[in-house]
Simulated assay, not measured.
Amino acid sequence: MTVFDLAADAIAALTGTRWSITDAPAHVPARPGLYAIYGDEQAHRELGLLEDAEVRSAPELPLYVGKAEASFVERDLKDHFAAVSGSTARTGGSTVRRSFAALLRGQLELCAVPRNLDNPRYFSMYSLAGDGDAQLTAWMHEHLSLAVWAAPVQLSAKLVDVETALIRHFTPVMNIDKNPRKLARLTVARKAMSAEAKEWRPPTQAAREAERDQ
């Protein structure tokens, strides 16, 4: 099959059945492939998309399209959503989470910190302070849903090429790379969180003692 054929098959799958994040573990296979993340109307409202003249977005369109090179379970259900028992999603390791965090920064009162507090660098891969990760995960579980396309066992093209074709087809607002209609506001919001992470400083001994006394 050509990239065009594979993309057509993937589009059909990703616009078909989707599951809530909490229900997805019972349906999503431990296979490589492509996935699409959708949001409900409240998600679009809180992300500031319903009245944004720059975007073409609605609950029936995917917010994000990505690829799982090894397994949907490892990449999506664990890394992005912490939907599998015992897993903990960390924003510092997920560009999907960083994009949602950037647009929900005010709504959820999120603060960016370096991914590794002991060795602060790579600030564009920011994490979230305090219970920010838990807040973001809870929001995702409440408002997002997932559709997947499992790649054929004998894939005749590179998965990244099929992903690129789908991003160009859907132009999902939460995708930055390879997106001809990427959301400028999202890029600005992510840079602001990167800057906030860069400004982070370890708490002083006095601050730590004051926090313990509260």
Rank of each mutant, 00 (worst) to 15 (best):
A134K: 10
R121K: 15
Y126M: 00
L117C: 03
M140Q: 11
V113R: 12
R121S: 13
D118M: 11
G130D: 04
M140W: 09
A112P: 05
L144A: 00
S127I: 09
A129M: 08
L136S: 13
Y122N: 13
M140T: 06
P114T: 14
N119C: 13
H143S: 02
G132H: 01
F123V: 02
T137E: 00
A134E: 05
N116R: 05
W139Q: 04
W139Y: 13
A112C: 07
M140L: 15
L144S: 02
P120R: 10
S124A: 05
R121W: 06
R121M: 08
Y122H: 12
D133R: 02
L117M: 13
G132F: 03
A112H: 07
L136D: 07
E142Y: 11
D131M: 02
N116Y: 04
A112S: 00
M140D: 00
L117W: 12
R115F: 13
L144G: 06
Y122P: 09
S127E: 08
V113F: 15
L128T: 00
H143M: 10
A134T: 04
D133L: 03
N116T: 07
L117P: 06
H141Q: 09
H141D: 00
H141L: 07
L117N: 03
F123M: 04
E142T: 14
D131S: 02
D133E: 14
L117H: 05
G130Y: 06
Y122C: 12
L136I: 14
A129C: 01
Y122D: 14
R115K: 15
P120V: 13
D131Q: 02
L144R: 03
W139T: 08
R121E: 10
R121G: 05
G132V: 08
D118S: 15
D118G: 14
Y126V: 05
Q135S: 01
D118I: 06
A138S: 04
D118T: 12
P114G: 10
L136P: 09
Q135D: 05
N116V: 02
L136E: 08
A129L: 11
D131T: 05
H141V: 05
G130L: 10
W139S: 05
N116C: 09
R115E: 12
T137C: 09
G130P: 04
W139K: 01
G130K: 06
M125I: 04
S124I: 01
L117E: 11
A134L: 00
A129V: 06
F123L: 06
Q135H: 12
G130Q: 07
W139D: 02
N116L: 04
D131L: 07
P120A: 09
D133C: 09
F123H: 12
S124M: 01
A129P: 07
G130I: 07
W139C: 01
N119V: 11
A138G: 05
D133Y: 08
Y122A: 13
D133V: 03
F123E: 00
Q135A: 12
S124K: 07
R115I: 01
D133G: 14
A138V: 06
D131P: 06
F123C: 03
F123W: 05
H141P: 07
Q135V: 07
E142P: 08
N116D: 13
N119E: 14
P114V: 14
N116A: 07
S127W: 09
A129W: 00
L136K: 10
D118A: 12
P120G: 11
D118Y: 06
